[in-house]
């Protein structure tokens, strides 16, 4: 498959602060590519530059053969954007919103009407189409927000954290929609700070942190970077001192890395079962009560931890 997106050394600076530090990557037609990173990593800024909202400080990107800096109007015709924040007119109904945005993408007449009804069906809001958006639940609004991005059948769809702040049911519906769209042939660039979403949806993942793309590849390729390791996760009580326990692990063989997030200690090890006994012993020695223990296969969280020394939620 040819590349639909090619990014070359994209940089965005705000005064002295560099939000995006020369990232480069490509996306092939038909792929779901996720940019995974914590809040403030530069995901939204990257999407803003690729969607021509912000001009890059340097570098360039081509989408469907059009440069975002030289041919922004051609790029806009080729892309659909689902922004992180709801960008809808709440006093208009879902149908009126879709009609307006369809018109902004050059649709008109019966083509517009048909496409609006099609999208309303796709996002499951045909029966509520006449209601004003302000009367919708958060999940329903998110679905309209996605619907707007689909109206003109873009070649590449940017979805910027579309599941932030919604209930699990709506989140599931959105993830299913993304998969359906991809099955229909749409290429998707999806940003998230939820590892599970990236794992479930993506053909390839780019991990971004502090404006740098620190790893890129399929899930398998990325987890290989961590090696054949497992993650042992200890949940300790709220009154306990997990950092003291991590310090005690320094002399335990086979513990490659140990990090604390809130009251959770993640231990990266070649064999979780081998280190389980000494870990529990160290906890008992210090009188630290362990509430529960999970053993996890290598995942993107572990990759991020391995690459940055921090958890995605940090």
């Amino acid at each position: 498959m040819p590349n639909i997106l090619e990014v070359q050394d994209l940089v965005k600076k705000y005064g002295d602060f560099t939000a995006v530090k020369g990232i480069s990557f490509t996306i092939k037609e038909g792929e779901i590519f996720s940019l995974l990173g914590p809040n403030g990593a530069g995901k939204t800024t990257t999407i803003s530059m690729l969607s021509t909202l912000y001009a890059p400080t340097s570098g360039d990107a081509t989408i469907a053969g059009h440069s975002v800096t030289k041919n922004p109007m051609d790029v806009r015709n080729a892309i659909g954007v689902v922004p992180q924040e709801l960008a809808l007119y709440e006093e208009l109904s879902a149908r009126e919103n879709l009609i307006f945005w369809g018109q902004m993408y050059g649709l008109s007449g019966s083509a517009l009407k048909e496409r609006v009804e099609e999208v309303l069906g796709q996002i499951g809001l045909l029966d509520k189409a006449k209601d004003r958006v302000k009367t919708y639940s958060g999940g329903m609004k998110r679905r309209v927000n996605i619907g707007v991005g689909l109206l003109h059948k873009p070649k590449l769809l940017f979805m910027d954290e579309p599941t932030v702040g919604i209930d699990p049911q709506s989140r599931r519906a959105i993830l299913d929609t993304v998969k359906d769209l991809n099955k229909q042939g749409m290429t998707v660039l999806y940003t998230t700070h939820y590892m599970e979403e990236a794992e479930e949806l993506s053909d390839r993942v780019g991990i971004i942190d502090h404006g740098e793309l620190i790893a890129i590849g399929t899930q398998k390729e990325l987890t290989k970077q961590v090696g054949e390791t497992e993650t042992l996760v200890l949940h300790v009580g709220e009154n306990e001192d997990p950092q003291a326990l991590v310090t005690a692990f320094k002399n335990v063989p086979d513990i490659l890395e140990a990090n604390v997030v809130d009251h959770e200690i993640s231990i990266i090890t070649p064999s979780a079962t081998d280190v389980l006994a000494p870990v529990v012993s160290k906890a008992n020695e210090r009188g630290i009560k362990i509430h529960s223990i999970d053993i996890r296969e290598p995942n993107l969280e572990a990759v991020f931890l391995h690459l940055t020394g921090r958890a995605l939620r940090d």
Partner: peptide
Amino acid sequence: GTLPRLLVSP
């Protein structure tokens, strides 16, 4: 966010 959305439309 509707103004930025307009700006990324053609």
